[in-house]
Write a protein that binds this DNA or RNA. Structure first.
Lengths: 176, 176
DNA sequence: TACTGCATGTAATGAGTTACATGATTAC
DNA sequence: GTAATCATGTAACTCATTACATGCAGTA
């Protein structure tokens, strides 16, 4: 994915520390659920990803776990340690990483849209626009998502639609 | 990464087919260079990724290679096959995939920005804005990039800056 | 001659995916 | 009682990463 430099957290590690900080005391299961709830399919939140990740972070001393139990059910609840907090801050405030365009399925496709016929292209853009509008009016898996998260995602959707409009103008002008 | 369903191309495979279609006849090396030239650090274009990928695509019959030589130097040049073209079209026009938010380092960080102090947050946003402006005035590795590609990337940068402005307003309103 | 770029690969490693497996608890 | 959810994990597999290795060709 993007382990760019050593001594730096990967994107998933940084996000995980932030989730622990937000949800603490948090179980690995809760982290997995939070990842899975993300609107991006990029973060699957699969157990096979999250449990080893949590172990790595605990081993590195960024989070510490205390065993808890409810009746006969046992679980481990994690909290952010001071060193974990410092690593998280460094990750979050890393400007070089933050300005990276990342990975955008729509952008990928737009870079090659001229390879299909204008009819297909226009139909595709119309469908994308409709689909984006639909997700916008969705309750957006409102169960666990916070107000802040929804506000962020909505603003992202809004600008995405604005971008689509700009792209259509560029296409009409023959620039894309 | 994002092998969502079987019988569907991954994002990298779809992009690779599109690159072959654009550059054909194209060597694996040329594809690697095209990936590496992407503004997103996500596509490293490393030999260890591209050569096996090209072999997979050739084995599946999506591209076909003809051996070529310049003097003593030999290389294999690939072209898109009809079935490869069909797969590429399906990949490109996949609306469900296209509307996926993907992976965005800035969005990831913004979802957790409330976990740092307002001072650090504001300094971070100012730095991001400056850095984005700088990349915008860059020649942007103009050697191989086409006009269309530059137009697309510039429009993306423009909307990214617009989004930053919107985010600042949301933060000021206490919504993020 | 030496350096840079073209061109092709492989090996070890790291990390995520799907799928499987187990068991406790809660809601209907 | 049974289905869904909480909770934890492992195993096989896929695939990208870094680093290495080789050799030809053009240029300073």
């Amino acid at each position: 994915m993007s382990k760019i430099t050593e001594d730096k957290l990967t994107e998933m590690e940084g996000l995980a520390l932030g989730l622990v900080k937000t949800l603490q005391p948090a179980s690995a299961y809760a982290l997995a659920a939070a990842f899975a709830q993300s609107p991006s399919a990029f973060w699957s939140g699969s157990a096979g990803a999250v449990y080893p990740l949590v172990k790595r972070l605990a081993k590195a001393g960024y989070i510490s776990g205390e065993k808890a139990r409810t009746g006969k059910r046992k679980s481990t609840l994690y909290r952010l340690t001071p060193s974990g907090n410092a690593m998280f801050r460094d990750w979050l405030l890393d400007v070089e990483r933050a300005i990276n365009p990342g990975f955008d399925p729509l952008r990928s496709r737009m870079s090659m849209i001229h390879l299909v016929s204008p009819q297909k292209r226009d139909a595709f853009l119309a469908n994308v626009e409709t689909a984006l509008h639909d997700t916008k009016t969705d309750p957006l898996s409102a169960k666990h998502s916070t107000e802040r998260f929804r506000a962020l995602h909505n603003s992202w959707l809004k600008q995405r639609l604005a971008w689509l409009g700009r792209l259509k103008a560029l296409i009409a002008a023959g620039k894309i």
